[in-house]
Nucleic acid binder design. Structure first.
Lengths: 251, 251
DNA sequence: TCAAAAGTGTTCATTATACACCCATGA
DNA sequence: TCATGGGTGTATAATGAACACTTTTGA
């Protein structure tokens, strides 16, 4: 019923033919075009946004597309995603993580193309868009319909959005979406906006203060039409050091 | 600083050249061989095991390899992984989920080959191995060293093991590793074995009973050299129905 | 002085943790 | 009768959830 390890080892006598030429082996594999698609989230005006361009493909005229490109020869996919991000937005030092590979053979009208989706988060204030080809701009995530987007990009976006919601409960990822100095109100708006929930203000503060990852800058908001809030920075070093003990945020 | 949506829309006048021939577009993309690799976990004798074969590649002689194959033309990767699982083990109706894509250009000695890792869980008792080519057998996960495995398969295994540990806290995945009827001791052994922790027996029972997903079969263990434990089944229907409310298991 | 959001504590309910004894079975 | 693990409850600590008033600022 179950093959014991020692039993398996003794059967080594009838050894199958070994493959000697690995290059020839790989030659024989079918090949598939690979792209990366970046789902780049930003947070602005208390709304979760995603960076899109107009598709330059005739049959998707007017539809929105994620930033993507095919993978170059001998390029690692993380590198390809980073290249896309940099070349299309001019931004550097950006959080980027692989989320999922989409392989439906019909997902690209020009034939089978695999795509590996990456999720990225950045601060719309501190990262000005330098290149504006193809109407590159921030688009509110909530308003996007499947029909508005090229390829299976709505599905990819939804997958990455769900991924972000989950991940934001486990790691303080979301903080990369905020300016370096932020008020607790902004932080709460971020969590409420991304998770699409309402949270109790006092409990939210308590929760974050008890994590002890916020550094009080001593500064205050400016230009607000009400009492200005304190500004905090996130203590990334402390977080990196303690993250093993940290099991996440729960609301 | 930030491009407003309406502003972007008005720029539509200077439209770039549109791509009409999508087939020609895809033709121009570089192509890469794609494989799937299945990390198939089993649980036996209170030990987490993984299903491996001997590599049939000369330069990896004697090393262990995950079950994998290249993706066929127009084959979705989920399908390819399932095909690998079925053709190599004869098993059906198996849990299978995509985990991560590995793209290091040096990961395959025969040239660049992307691989998409899938994780699968099955019950070693109920799924007898039907095909035993290449010494297909269960190998204890703990004892495997990087040098024992072909390609980057140790890295893939580690990634999937970490994934499983995390996922088992969020979903009762692990139950597919057990026989249909199981005792609470077996269930606890499973959690302890996969997560590599010790748990309090009374609290573990309370936790699982309070989730209310266990159905008492009224039957008892047999052939045990001590008082036999009650056997339970997992109420998958109830779980499916309630899983939105369910936020996971925590120890 | 008004509007708007900042800042702040307590109570109650729930959940996690730690811990020890008797029971049923096979050998 | 003994060894082995099955089965059970309680007390304490920690955490989450609900909730209202005063303060500060700009308009």
């Amino acid at each position: 019923m179950l093959v014991d390890e020692s039993a398996a080892t003794t059967k080594q006598s009838k050894e199958p033919a070994m493959i000697k030429d690995v290059f020839k082996l790989v030659e024989g594999y079918p090949r598939v075009p690979i792209t990366v698609d970046c789902v780049i989230f930003g947070f602005d005006q208390n709304v979760l946004k995603v960076l899109l361009i107009r598709s330059d493909i005739e049959m998707f005229r007017g539809k929105w597309s994620l930033l993507g490109d095919f993978a170059h020869d001998d390029e690692e996919l993380d590198g390809a995603a980073y290249r896309v991000l940099q070349s299309r937005t001019g931004m550097e030092d950006v959080y980027l993580e692989q989320v999922k590979t989409f392989s439906n053979p019909k997902r690209h009208p020009g034939g089978r193309v695999l795509t590996v989706a990456y999720c990225s988060l950045l601060n719309t204030e501190h990262h000005a868009l330098k290149i504006l080809d193809n109407e590159l701009h921030w688009h509110a995530v909530k308003n996007l319909q499947k029909e508005d987007m090229a390829f299976d990009h709505k599905e990819i976006l939804d997958t990455c959005h769900a991924w972000l919601q989950k991940r934001m409960m486990e790691h303080p990822l979301g903080l990369t979406l905020l300016p370096e100095k932020f008020s607790l109100r902004e932080l709460q708006n971020l969590y409420e906006g991304v998770l699409d929930v309402k949270l109790d203000r006092r409990n939210f503060r308590k929760k974050f203060f008890s994590m002890d990852f916020l550094i009080d800058t001593g500064e205050y908001e400016d230009d607000v039409p009400h009492r200005p809030g304190r500004l905090y920075r996130f203590d990334y070093k402390k977080y990196e050091h303690n993250k093993r003990k940290w099991t996440g945020i729960e609301f």
